[in-house]
Computed example of a mutant assay.
Amino acid sequence: MTTRIVVLGAGYSGQLAARLAARQRDTEVTLVNERDRFVERVRLHQLVSGQDLRDRPLADLVKGTGIRLVIDRVTAVDAAEGSVALAGGETLPYDTLVYALGSRMDLASVPGAAEHAFTVATVEEAARLRARLASGEVVTVVGGGLTGIETVTELAERQPDLKMRLLTADGLGDRLSAKGRRHLRRTFDRLGIHVREHARVAEVRSDGVVLSDGEHVASDVVVWTTGFVVPTLAKDAGLAVDDHGRLAVDATTRSVSHRNVYGIGDAAAMRMPGGQELRMACATGLPVAQQSVRAIMAHRDGRPAKDFGFRYVNQCISLGRRDGLIQFVNRFDEPVERVLTGRLAALYKEAIVLGAFQTQRHPSIPTSF
């Protein structure tokens, strides 16, 4: 009997899951995505800085795989009936649903952010920011996470005429080791990036931001890189979700409330057996996609699915095209003192990004994690 598998979202996790599922026996796989291009989201800061990214049509990527590709927006999931409604009017029935809709930037939590701030969350938003930078001089990047760090350093390197500023609610590189923080600060000093630590933005205006203490920080362009939200489709469908609206799944990636639904990527709250929550990253999304397909096949065939076993190795941060920081971590994803920096780290990060894409082209399922 053929199992109808519908995968929602063709990002890193969703596309890999669809390709792996299509390789299994007796499966019929439909991949749904709102855009007709695969977006290397981890490269969007490069697009902002003036670099051109390779065009990757989804139709070309899934050609010959047996996957049915549907370019449309998902409007609802009927978990009781086992179907997905699309904006174009089509309804897709499923036996198994893979929920991989990803995340988007949170612009609603701070007044004025949606109206006045730019983001690097999608190709369209990154292109809009790129165009705006042509007429700006002072740029403020809000958010000291990886997206903020990579964006501000890429811009500072590629467009040295811009006056770059980073605002972070925490300390710069708080999640790095002492060696990692030292290299990050040296890089910021070399690139002329001004940093404001422990600065919380209370409002975004057309001429800059207002901090929680009332100070106005003038800026021609505000780039928002902090906070992510996920679609409400899972919650609206009555699926169990966590406090952030992410699909609640067990250690095999299966929904805790609906046995024929699996969650992967940013839109799912995946935890290790010990309770550790996995971070939003390609380093998480790709192995979780592999785990999900392995679990789907096991459950379908009446076999017990193994719990997800996994550990992080490092965090990879690009600091422009000629510098980088590879922060090695322990099994709990906590930084150790070992780091790799400079040109070698930049090449390392590029190899990781290329490898993430090649995994889409040549997918496999490890026998163990």
Results as ranks from 00 to 15, higher is better:
3 T>D: 09
7 V>M: 08
10 A>V: 10
10 A>W: 04
17 A>E: 00
26 D>C: 07
27 T>G: 00
27 T>D: 01
28 E>M: 06
32 V>R: 02
38 F>M: 13
39 V>P: 02
49 S>Q: 10
49 S>K: 04
49 S>F: 05
50 G>C: 05
51 Q>A: 15
57 P>V: 11
65 T>A: 00
69 L>H: 04
72 D>E: 09
77 V>R: 08
77 V>F: 15
80 A>N: 05
81 E>K: 07
83 S>K: 06
85 A>M: 11
91 T>A: 10
93 P>R: 05
95 D>S: 12
97 L>W: 01
97 L>H: 05
100 A>S: 14
104 R>M: 15
111 P>H: 09
112 G>L: 09
116 H>A: 00
119 T>I: 03
125 E>K: 03
125 E>H: 07
127 A>R: 04
133 L>M: 03
134 A>F: 08
137 E>D: 12
137 E>F: 11
138 V>G: 09
143 G>S: 12
144 G>N: 09
144 G>M: 11
149 I>G: 04
150 E>R: 15
154 E>K: 09
154 E>M: 09
154 E>S: 13
154 E>V: 00
161 D>Q: 15
168 T>I: 14
176 L>A: 11
177 S>F: 08
182 R>Y: 12
190 R>D: 13
191 L>G: 04
191 L>T: 02
196 R>M: 12
199 A>L: 00
199 A>E: 03
203 E>G: 06
204 V>T: 06
204 V>F: 02
208 G>F: 03
208 G>E: 00
213 D>V: 09
216 H>R: 15
219 S>C: 10
221 V>R: 01
222 V>L: 08
227 G>P: 12
231 P>V: 05
236 D>V: 02
236 D>F: 04
241 V>Y: 03
244 H>P: 00
245 G>K: 01
252 T>I: 11
253 T>I: 02
256 V>A: 08
259 R>K: 12
266 D>F: 01
270 M>E: 05
279 R>D: 01
280 M>P: 05
282 C>R: 03
285 G>L: 00
285 G>A: 12
290 Q>Y: 13
292 S>R: 01
295 A>D: 04
295 A>S: 11
299 H>S: 01
305 A>T: 08
308 F>Q: 03
309 G>H: 13
309 G>I: 00
316 C>K: 10
325 L>S: 07
326 I>T: 06
327 Q>N: 10
327 Q>I: 04
328 F>M: 10
330 N>C: 07
333 D>A: 04
333 D>Y: 01
343 R>F: 08
344 L>R: 15
346 A>C: 10
348 Y>W: 14
349 K>R: 14
354 L>N: 14
358 Q>C: 12
360 Q>R: 00
362 H>K: 12
364 S>C: 08
365 I>L: 04
365 I>E: 00
367 T>N: 09
369 F>M: 11
